[in-house]
Design a binder for these strands. Structure first.
Length: 567
RNA sequence: GCACCCGUAGUGAAAUGGAUAUCACAACAGUCUUCGGAACUGUCGUUGGGGGUUCGAGUCCCUCCGGGUGCACCA
């Protein structure tokens, strides 16, 4: 018996009971009671039905309970009615024993389901722009996008990861123009990003420079100027290469890269094809009148008066190019929530050109990573780069490691894995739509609620298992041992994976894993796990430890966080 | 001004309309001759204000207050 089936089993017998009682089917919930002593599952079906029938919910609950008793599944120990009208189900310990064994059977596969089997999803996230810094905002998009990708995979779908990069546009022209005007050398991606920020400042203060940038921008598109082409290719190459290095460190990889230089031309042609019609000319530009479709929408420019496609037109082209590249069922786009409104306009335009694509496209706007001092801006150079953040957290990790008996601080990739785990955790611990106030001190603290706390718990479990091995005690469940809260929670992992998909909620997994780690650490503090005097019970406790480690590892893996053996 | 999002202990967060609102940090008080103290136990303290819907509201509706974001050629 696999967990996610349990709630649907219960749902089934409840529906049948309603039918037998000649009651109407209603929309009821099957959930875990907050207070575990109430039972393992509960349903509010009596309260929902009582509303429609205008009867006493408690009496109705009793009636439904009697009906349920007639077809009580064998894993159910008892069914009870509580206060306002809940019906609580308590399962037999043997059920949990079976589920615990299942964790060890499934091992690395434990938690996966086939709900989305056969479905193809393409997901776009991160989207850093060449010529600019890869800052902590991109880290946020990458972390959330990667976690969602994995959640979808764990729910059975095939996933292709896409990264969309603005390799052309006014931002690029600023950097290129700056290099040409000042003749600075570009050796690394940092020199390029510096040109971008310096060029942006000039762009705002110097009229002549601004005109030059517009010129350069046109030539980047037309590819007619040799010097500009060379500078452009150099900057593009340096930044893209650097991004690849970062993806390795972050533990992410992409199947497809899309560039504005290709989507722009394609999108521009699409817009022209539907002008007039879907689009219209206005003040020399080609625009989409969102407000004519829906009062919540507004007008947006798709092709500017220079004849250059804006982000809107590019994104339109991108939607089609994605489908031509990988014929998906679902397309997900992860971006900052500052573009939420603009994305609605874009979807409205897309729905008129490619209705099917629009229907299957989902936009996830994640919150902003903001500094206590205010908004970051790469135009003013006021940014925290991903690299500097990882470096700072790594330093902190090393300090901590040096205080330990087993000083592993010389293992650079281990240090990096822990640092990245800490960063990813701090992003994923809250609902994706909300802003993360980036408090540096908090982000590099590993106490309590943190990635390293989970990794540490797992590393500690590994040590226990090793010790057990040395002592010749294998992890084996003891029959008829009473079931602990920890075990009951461990067994729920597959439900959490399913829930994380349904609600687009990576944080549901984070919250769950933190609860698991807390329960295990309490268990660890209160029990001698490996005890030569009591081999049978030691074997049982080791089996619980092994299961806990498995769930932690699988959960961290879904989140894109590694689980080091030692740390 | 219009639109969208948000407001939960001192701080950062969690909670498909359900039972006694959960977790961490901070503060305070403890635990350890044991397997990894990045640990464990305890105390303190919370739904912005006002109406409404509901058997039941942090969650839904109205309103006020406060904050964020977007609103024509940036992405």
């Amino acid at each position: 018996m696999i967990q996610p089936m349990v709630s649907s089993d219960l749902r089934g017998i409840i529906e049948k009971a309603l039918k037998n009682l000649a009651m109407e089917q209603v929309d009821f919930a099957v959930e875990h009671p907050e207070e575990m002593s109430h039972g393992d599952y509960a349903t509010n079906v009596a309260m929902v039905s009582a509303k429609a029938l205008k009867t006493n919910p408690l009496e109705l609950a009793e009636k439904i309970k009697e009906e349920l008793e007639k077809e009580k599944p064998d894993f159910v120990e008892k069914i009870e009615v509580a206060k306002p009208g809940f019906i609580n189900f308590t399962f037999k310990d043997s059920f949990f024993a079976g589920e615990m064994a299942n964790i060890l059977d499934k091992a690395d596969e434990f938690g996966k389901n086939e709900k989305l089997s056969g479905q193809k999803t393409i997901i776009e996230y991160t989207d850093p722009n060449p010529f600019k810094e890869f800052h902590i905002g991109h880290t946020m998009s990458n972390t959330i996008g990667e976690a969602i990708s994995r959640i979808i995979e764990w729910n059975g779908a095939e996933v292709r990861r896409a990264c969309y990069q603005g390799d052309k546009g006014i931002h690029v022209a600023r950097a290129v123009a700056h290099k040409i005007k000042t003749k600075v050398e570009w050796r690394t991606e940092k020199d390029v990003a510096l040109s971008y920020s310096e060029g942006s400042k000039l762009y705002e203060t110097d009229e002549d420079f601004k005109k030059f940038v517009v010129e350069v921008n046109k030539k980047i598109y037309s590819e007619t100027d040799t010097e500009i082409n060379e500078v452009y290719m150099l900057g593009r190459g340096l930044t893209l290469e650097y991004f690849e290095k970062l993806y390795k460190v972050l533990g992410t990889r992409f199947d497809y890269y899309f560039f504005e230089s290709t989507t722009g031309e394609f999108g521009k042609a699409l817009v022209h094809k539907h002008t007039p019609g879907i689009f219209e000319e206005s003040e020399g530009a080609i625009v989409f009148r969102g407000e004519k479709r829906d009062t919540k929408l507004h007008t947006r420019v798709f092709i500017n008066k220079e004849g250059i496609p804006t982000y809107e037109a590019k994104e339109l082209g991108l939607a089609k190019i994605k489908y031509d590249t990988y014929s998906h069922d679902i397309s997900i786009v992860v971006t900052g929530n500052e573009v939420n409104d603009y994305f609605k306009v874009l979807m409205s335009a897309l729905s008129e050109i490619f209705p099917n694509l629009a229907k299957n496209t989902k936009h996830i706007g994640h919150g902003m990573l903001r500094l206590p001092t205010g908004k970051m801006s790469s135009r003013t150079g006021d940014v925290i780069t991903a690299e500097s953040l990882i470096r700072a957290v790594s330093e902190k990790v090393k300090e901590k490691m040096k205080k330990s008996d087993r000083d592993l601080s010389s293992d650079e990739s281990l240090v990096s894995d822990i640092a990245v785990g800490a960063i990813r955790y701090s992003i994923l611990r809250q609902a994706p739509g909300r802003d993360v106030i980036f408090d540096f001190e908090k982000a590099i603290s590993f106490e309590g609620d943190s990635g390293p706390y989970l990794q540490y718990t797992n590393a500690r479990i590994n040590s226990l298992l090793e010790k057990g091995k040395e002592m010749g005690i294998n992890p084996v469940f003891k029959k008829d041992e009473s079931v602990s809260v920890l075990e009951k929670i461990l067994v729920r992992f597959p439900e959490v994976v399913a829930e994380a998909y349904e609600n687009t909620a990576p944080h549901a997994i984070v919250t769950y894993l933190t609860e698991v780690a807390g329960l295990f650490n309490a268990f660890y503090a209160n029990n001698q796990i490996v005890d030569l005097e009591k081999k049978e019970i030691s074997a049982h406790r080791l089996a619980i430890a092994l299961s806990t480690g498995q769930v932690l590892k699988n959960g961290l893996s879904v989140l894109g966080i590694s689980s080091p053996e030692k740390m």
